[in-house]
């Protein structure tokens, strides 16, 4: 699909979510390509609902207002599978019935038809994250950090136009966390993807080095801090 405006990133326009008539959260924010917006909040503050709204999975119990615009496309009436938004979850969710390499090939767009070419792309992706030779392995035999790296490459191979990260580092132990985190952020920036990171780990927010939005905090703080935004 030819994007109308590839230069613009992910824009959340006056988004507010209600549950049973009560406003759960509201946000108005612009994430340029390559920038990271970190959303912080206690559990129950609506972090996951916001991600579900952006990705197109919001439960019918919720009422949503506002628009999500990605590269100039308004996503409001677009099906989840057509939004071109890559997701990473708290657990890597590698498909247990496929090998590591098959997991990656699964994500490659069908326009690349040549099977050899598909395999090479997947193998290259593994090499890029230091997992060359892991292709034939059962995903369950990989460590948490390795699984997260595979999940990241799987997400990127699908050629997303934005990334949503739902605490993808929380399942990793402290020693691996910073390494994997850096890898994710570096690759997202390299690909020029707007990133929305949801977390309750201050360290994640600091490492992301971008805007930070606190949910459920003081009402006046709700809004988007457009200042202090590092641009590469």
């Amino acid at each position: 699909m030819i994007a109308p405006d590839p230069a613009s990133g992910l824009i959340l326009q006056n988004v507010s979510l209600r549950l049973n008539g009560l406003v759960l959260l509201s946000i108005d924010c612009d994430i340029p390509p390559g920038a990271i917006l970190t959303i912080m909040g206690e559990s129950g503050s609506g972090k996951s609902s916001l991600l579900n709204f952006i990705a197109g999975f919001l439960k019918p119990d919720f009422e949503a207002q506002g628009d999500v615009v990605l590269r100039g496309r308004n996503l409001s009436n677009v099906a989840a599978q057509d939004r071109h938004i890559g997701l990473m979850f708290q657990s890597p969710l590698l498909f247990p019935h496929m090998s590591v390499l098959q997991n990656l090939i699964f994500a490659i767009p069908p326009e690349i038809k040549n099977r050899q070419k598909r395999r090479e792309l997947a193998e290259q992706a593994l090499t890029d994250v230091g997992l060359a030779g892991f292709g034939t392995r059962d995903p369950a035999t990989l460590s948490g950090g390795q699984q997260t790296r595979v999940a990241l490459m799987r997400t990127l191979l699908a050629q997303p136009e934005a990334l949503l990260l739902d605490e993808p580092f929380s399942s990793l132990d402290q020693s691996r966390r910073s390494e994997v985190r850096k890898l994710v952020f570096d690759l997202a920036r390299k690909n020029g993807l707007p990133v929305l990171l949801v977390t309750h780990d201050e360290e994640d927010a600091r490492a992301a080095g971008g805007m930070v939005h606190h949910l459920g905090a003081d009402e006046t703080k709700n809004g988007c801090p457009l200042t202090g935004q590092p641009q590469q």
Partner: peptide, 25 residues
Amino acid sequence: EDFFKAGAGLGYGRMATFFKIVLPQ
């Protein structure tokens, strides 16, 4: 539910996600 989301996140339709990702499990 997360596997359904993962499928859609990779651009797979709902039915394709079910048959390729969820059903085998």
